[in-house]
Simulated scan of single mutants.
Amino acid sequence: MRKARRDDAVTIARLLGQLGYPASDELIDSRLQQQIDHDDACLLVAEGDDGQLLGFISLHFIAQLALEGDFCRISYLCVDSTARSRGIGELLVQAAELRARGRGCDRMELHCDVRRDAAHRFYARLGYEDAPKYFRRSLN
């Protein structure tokens, strides 16, 4: 596991496309730099033995007002379709949880769209519980 670098942008864009988020390499390059520069964000990547990027996890650390510990939100987790079911996703989540603990977080959160059944099973295997209420509103 390592932190993402600017030269990972093309591969991350391809992986996001596998998740159903097609975006230009230029947009991802710009957004990747924002994540790298942001003190409360972290983007980790998993590499194969050959140095090929196999997956990534995007994290945001959020201060809580009423509780002592902060929380960490997983905003994206993707493992290349050719490398799934090899434990890479679990290793990425473990690395994320380790970073979150180091930042003083007392819980992890994520949103996983209702249509992603396999991802729901994955998170349940890792001990994540379903918290079914999630509200959103588009600002566009």
Rank of each mutant, 00 (worst) to 15 (best):
A63E: 07
I28L: 12
A124M: 02
T11P: 02
E47N: 11
R103Y: 03
D80H: 06
A95K: 08
Q94K: 12
R99E: 13
R125N: 13
R84L: 07
D40F: 06
Q33T: 06
Q35S: 13
A96Y: 02
A46M: 12
H120F: 02
A46F: 01
L15Y: 05
L53W: 01
F56C: 11
A119H: 06
N140F: 05
L15N: 11
L67Q: 14
D37Y: 01
G104C: 08
Q35M: 13
Y123H: 11
V114D: 13
A66E: 12
G104M: 10
V10C: 07
P132G: 07
H38D: 13
G87N: 10
L59M: 13
G127Q: 05
L65D: 02
D113M: 01
D49N: 06
R115V: 10
A96E: 04
E90F: 02
G127M: 06
G20K: 08
L44Q: 08
L19R: 05
I62L: 15
A96K: 00
R14M: 03
R73Y: 01
G20Y: 04
I28A: 09
C72V: 05
S85R: 15
F56V: 06
A63V: 07
F122W: 05
I74S: 03
R125T: 13
L91S: 11
F135V: 02
L77F: 04
A41R: 15
L126K: 04
C112R: 04
I28D: 13
G20N: 10
E26T: 00
A4Y: 01
S138A: 13
V93L: 02
A63P: 12
D106N: 14
R115T: 15
G69R: 15
